[in-house]
């Protein structure tokens, strides 16, 4: 498949701002999807609300753009009703970690076969730059005009703790590693989570002295520390404080049985 066949060109132009990281993520995803040989006719893309959640609308396949935060819940119902379809969720930090936080942790725990890609740009971009659950401490946003008083969530660490089968985090600067992780995630059964720390120059960088996309990418490069499969070591760095460092890598890759592939087994307390 060629890159342009992947997109529904009738829907262009897209809504993303100049310098947005969504294009990088989409192209990395296309590469992973193509290399692994998945078919658009057999794949459904699911999303919630926000900039990253617009991505499914541009892909030339079945897509459902749901309500804010509910993508994983909708994807769960869809996958269980049609297990033969491949279901991919595109979401963002606000959609996944704030309004959809409960579905996220329970999705990881439940381990239905879904691939969740979260574009974490540390801000509510579509509504104009309000602080999100991943905005670093002390950073500026339209709702934290004196600096963010709160501390950010570490979404990947939550996914690891909640039981996802595969968890990785990269930034939009790590296109090769990101593509590789997306491929690994697609190839794997169960609930797989890839977080991409991405740049929002318009609404995050602009208020934090990094108005230019390249300034944010340089900052990602400078701050990233790779810690593969080193969950214990990463515990010191669960605070995704971009002023400090961004822990990247493949944090977990395990094979818990999928929800819908349970092969009977003996129920606990059987024969009471």
């Amino acid at each position: 498949m060629e890159l342009f066949d992947f997109y529904d060109q009738d829907r262009w132009p897209h809504v993303f701002c100049p310098g947005c990281g969504n294009g990088t993520v989409m192209n990395c995803f296309f590469r992973a999807f193509n290399e692994i040989g998945w078919k658009l006719d057999n794949t459904v893309f699911v999303s919630g609300i926000g900039c990253s959640s617009r991505i499914p609308l541009y892909i030339n396949s079945d897509a459902i753009h749901t309500t804010h935060g509910r993508a994983i819940a909708v994807a769960t119902g869809l996958k269980l009703s049609r297990p033969e379809l491949d279901v991919v969720v595109f979401t963002g930090d606000g959609d996944l970690g704030a309004i959809g936080g409960n579905h996220f942790i329970n999705g990881c725990r439940r381990n239905v076969d879904l691939d969740v890609i979260c574009i974490n740009n540390n801000i509510y971009g579509m509504t104009g730059g309000q602080a999100s659950i991943t905005t670093p401490h002390d950073f500026m946003s339209s709702t934290t005009p004196f600096g963010n008083k709160e501390y950010p969530f570490d979404l990947a660490e939550i996914a690891v703790a909640a039981g996802a089968n595969y968890v990785a985090r990269w930034t939009t600067k790590h296109v090769h590693e990101l593509t590789k992780s997306m491929k690994a995630s697609l190839a794997k059964k169960g609930f797989n989570f890839v977080e991409v720390v991405s740049q929002c120059p318009t609404n995050f960088g602009r208020r934090n002295k990094m108005a230019d996309a390249t300034a944010l990418l340089d900052w990602f490069k400078k701050s990233s520390v790779r810690r593969d499969k080193a969950r214990a070591a990463a515990i010191d760095h669960v605070d995704l404080n971009l002023a400090g460092q961004i822990t990247t890598g493949e944090f977990v890759c395990r094979d818990r049985e999928c929800y819908h592939e349970r092969k009977g087994g003996k129920p606990h307390g059987d024969g009471h």
Partner: peptide
């Protein structure tokens, strides 16, 4: 949300 997803399936 889940029943909406299943219905589209």
């Amino acid at each position: 949300s889940a029943i909406v997803g299943a219905s589209w399936g």
